[in-house]
Nucleic acid binder design. Sequence first.
RNA 1: GCGGGCAUAGUGUAGUCUGGUUAUCACAUAGGCUUGCCAAGCCUAUAACUCGGGUUCAAAUCCCGGUGCCCGCACCA
Length: 558
Amino acid sequence: MALARAPGRGSGRGGHHSSAARPATAPGGPGLPDRDAHDRTPYGPVAAPGDGAGRRTMKSDELFALLRRRGVLWPTAEIYGGAQGLYDYGPLGASLKRQVEEAWVAWFVGLSHDYYRLDPAEILPEAVVRASGHLENFTDPEVSCETCHAAFRAETVLEKIRPEGVDGLVSAQIAEILLANHARCPNCGSTALSVPRPFNLMFGLDFGVTGKERAYLRPETAQSSYLAFPRMWDVGRHALPLGVAVVGKAYRNEIAPRQVLFRMRAFTQAELQIFFDPAGFPVPFARVREEPLPVLRVPRRESGEESPEWVTAADLVASGGLPEFYVYHLVHCYRFFRDVLGYPADRLRLFEKSDRERAFYNRLQFDIEGRLESLGGFKELGAVHYRGEYDLSRHGEGSGKDLSVTLTDGRSVRPHVLELTFGVDRNVWALADLLLGVEGERTLWRLPAYLAPVSVGVFPLIPKAHAAYALRLADELAAANIAVRYDDGGTIGKRYARMDEAGTPFCVTVDAETLAEGEKKDTVTLRERDSRAQTRVAVGELVSRIRTATCLPRPPRY
RNA sequence: GCGGGCAUAGUGUAGUCUGGUUAUCACAUAGGCUUGCCAAGCCUAUAACUCGGGUUCAAAUCCCGGUGCCCGCACCA
């Protein structure tokens, strides 16, 4: 079933978005690419983004207040005034985050029979981060200007007087060079620069009983996957491409954590590392070649353009010079955001990073960005990195183990890595920014049904009369493994409103007809969140109807 | 890290300039009335001056410091 194709969106498990409530953008529409318009003219402009149907967007403060109030998330150690860059997820948030993770796994691990999920340790011995380059790069010394108090990496200041950089120098040597050359502050020109102090974005740990061994909280989950490669090569029965997926926490001691879930000190990443034969990475490209993508490439960016242009996957390969395997995965990432998470297509762009911007080991990098009103612009939500052989080669040297493998045709190769990376917390925020809003009188969270923390609310129309039946029904649904919430507080309208705000896709109401003998005995009203439409449904059908709608989408495998 | 601004119930706020009753209002939450299918109404209840120090007979209000948040700069291998 070609769920990933746009038409799948409006029906079945593709989600429960009301197309009418979305802006009718010229190209694409709400996740529904206009094929005719784009097969032949892939370079048309993307329509100006906007919010149809009177949806009012929220700024960061207001959105965060709403999320706090509803128990989605709040600052860690709030009663002590909070801890910068740390947040706790409450009941709704924990559940939503988990659903996002599951959706990610279903989609990306589902890409191939040879992709696997791992759950590695969060602490890495020093030798690992030394080999990966994190120790070296994260200990870049930092100097500050005594006059204007600006802070810089020593390398930035030294660039002009010492082109080879600061590699291998200790703080004292850097200080000498700075002084001897009368180095100036890049900001104000003052020569009053402080002694360089090491600054490391990793959390270091005293490891072991003696406390003399060093270890670090992993700064990214990817390293664990590289370390697991030899073991996974056996587990995966010696086949390339081999995919290793990790969903887990990473830790960075950010200088200035800000913007709530966008710059955290402890955050959750979902990353798929695909090891492949550099001589060829076969993909069923025909399945994606017609897909129009909103891309913003480096030359267009350099001309000052901020908006993406629509280009088909085929054109990105034919005239864009990108390899098929790369574009194929870029398409699947884009589809994940659009079709699985349900982000409006006109809020997404694929942003190419230039040589200067991307890490040196990345040969290709596109960030998938979402335009978030709450944060005032496009923000990185995921990325596709072609990392080449950097990682296996570094860990091969660091560990002294040969990480190359012998293929069935007898060739010995060191696999290359394609990394699909995804910020889970950021996307929880993006789901709130893009899909939660005030629409007229309602506050409505248009989450896809399979992401909603609660799948169905069960209400007695009149608590005194119908509570017993409704409670029993709620228990039955829960027993069928459906996330259900019983509510008999306030008026029926208030209960619907609470569920709308939490993104609950369905509400079931037990009324007098449910109990009375007759044709409608054991039927209830099933109310759909976005349209508010009610249908009379036999209670026996509820489980299968809700299950169908809350089934996670999966891509076709290759 | 630097500079500026801000800080009052769960949320949003009035009061601060000009110190002086029981700290305003709305929403939210809980209970009651309402036989009610989309946040109605009425009654009741819970609930706050960011923290520490100072000035004063008296501090939410004035002063000093801490912390946090927001914006800008810097940082984000």
